[in-house]
Amino acid sequence: MAKIIVITSGKGGVGKTTTSAAFASGLALRGYRTVVIDFDVGLRNLDLIMGCERRVVYDLINVIQGEAKLQQALIKDKRCENLYVLPTSQTRDKDALTSEGVTAVMDELRTEFDYIVCDSPAGIESGALMALYHADEAIVVTNPEVSSVRDSDRILGILAARSRRAEQGEEPVKEHLLLTRYSPKRVEGGEMLSLQDVKELLRTPLLGVIPESEVILQASNQGIPAIHMENSDVAEAYKDVVARFLGEERPLRFIHPVKVGFFKRLFGG
């Protein structure tokens, strides 16, 4: 039976889709049969980040409305053997996502996969609620700034109250905090909240820290999940996240400003 993981945040633009793509790819690279689902109906970003936008024929909404079979909508990733993408529709509105429909899709996917990764839309309305409802675990993506932390706090409350696990009185959804777009230099300059600040405010176990990096932009422009960007900090950071998620111990990296060496300073980097 698959484990369902929602990637959520409350606030928009913090790195949920970037994380969903990288994390799902990382699980697949470890050999797990993984599917990543785009719940952001009307925007449809995940397929772009995964580089499969031209292979989208049917989507989640078609499946929910009975216009296509699940098998027809699942797109096999071109880089990872075990990874599938379930894209969403750009043309339908959010009401097309019904809770019965989502439940049916989840029930079918559960038997086929090890992990189901749900990329949530921003906000705390129905789309975000649908994405988190079935979750067994949640990765709450947060940027080191006050409004993002507040929204993460809010979504943590909603996870504790409105998920299927909460409604049925089961073991609560397991929460993970993922701090992204972390810029140690700006933290040092006092422009951003520090890792300690965020941990103290949210009090949720930390899964990892993803540094701010222009590699993310290159990756998304090429449709390559960031975890495949060889020799980059972000790829390494996302690999650590996957490892910790699977229960391995990894020290935190990329949380201190890079010290520029004497010669580099002298001759220019």
């Binding site: 507040r150 706090d153 809010r154 943590l156 409350g157 504790a160 949210l202 009090r203």
Partner: peptide, 8 residues
């Protein structure tokens, strides 16, 4: 025994 979050 758990944090009470914004909105709760």
């Amino acid at each position: 025994d758990h944090p009470i979050r914004g909105g709760q």
